[in-house]
């Protein structure tokens, strides 16, 4: 699915990613954890192509293509989806018409026929049910006046509609109460299949109780310092990050 090799990236001239290596295969869920400022969100944004992040070194191969050569919209059309940590409000554009445009752009790119308004409406209503979403949110302007939880749910709704190959969820669990967390997790679990993959960026082990990852990686100061299975997350919960970062520091020569 995606191969990340020695990825380095700067924000405003400061190096944040310092050589990330990661392979994600179809059917896998990878959780990326780590303390604040370790570069988790940077990694998500670099993959999506945010222009504030400058890639200085390395390579990302996504489904056989050089991801870094693609414009952000083409990355999306190729099947890369980012669930934003802070979803943006777009006044005046209804959630439904925005998503219909997005889906049809992606379908056009793939040479598939576009959805009519009617077909799309049926699709979005069906997906909204999965997420217990209030139907009024579909006709409201994108994210405008949505609560924090509604915004996150809306991100997952978009993921279900656009049905990407790789979904990168950037702290989708932050700011969610336990009920919302369960619903969002359900959405992700419905999405999971052996044809797609998920990268979960999170602070908390709690999310991993509901979305069980195949692999857990710890990101620290722009590098993956430890990888393991779900048990690693439990260990982190118990011990915090300090034991890892201390142990790794000399080795990594940070």
């Amino acid at each position: 699915m995606i191969k990340i090799r020695n990825l380095h990236a700067n924000v405003e001239g400061k190096e944040i990613l310092r050589g990330i290596n990661l392979d994600v295969n179809a059917g896998e869920v990878h959780a990326i954890m780590g303390p604040n400022g370790s570069g988790k969100s940077t990694l998500a944004n670099v993959l999506a192509g945010h222009e504030a992040y400058e890639v200085t070194e390395g390579e990302v191969i996504f489904e056989g293509k050089n991801l870094l050569d693609l414009a952000p919209e083409d990355r999306a059309r190729e099947g890369l989806f980012l669930a934003f940590q802070y979803p943006i409000e777009i006044p005046g554009i209804s959630n439904t018409s925005f998503l219909q445009t997005a889906l049809n752009e992606i379908r056009k790119y793939k040479g598939l026929p576009e959805y009519s308004a009617k077909e799309f409406l049926d699709l979005i209503k069906a997906k909204a049910v999965v997420l217990n979403m209030n139907p009024s949110l579909l006709s409201r302007p994108v994210n405008q006046g949505f609560s924090g939880g509604e915004k996150k749910r809306n991100e997952i709704l978009q993921m279900l509609i656009l049905n990407p190959k790789l979904a990168v969820l950037d702290e989708t669990d932050s700011g969610l109460d336990i009920d919302a967390l369960k619903i969002v997790s359900k959405g992700v679990n419905v999405f999971r299949s052996n044809k797609n993959a998920v990268i979960l960026v999170t602070h908390y082990q709690r999310l991993l109780d509901y979305i069980v990852p195949d692999f857990v990686h710890v990101l620290y100061r722009g590098k993956i310092v430890k990888s393991g299975t779900k048990d690693l997350a439990l260990e982190l919960e118990e011990k915090g990050y300090e034991w890892l970062t201390k142990a790794e520091l000399p080795v990594e020569n940070v």
Binding site: R75, L82, I88, I90, E105, Q158
Partner: peptide, 25 residues
């Protein structure tokens, strides 16, 4: 830029994103 990037990330080109935002306005 964040609005445009958000729409880009959903497969919408910058040109279309601007039109969309302006039409919303």
């Amino acid at each position: 830029d964040d609005q445009i990037f958000y729409l880009n990330q959903r497969g919408i080109s910058t040109e279309d994103a601007v039109n969309m935002i302006v039409n919303g306005f």
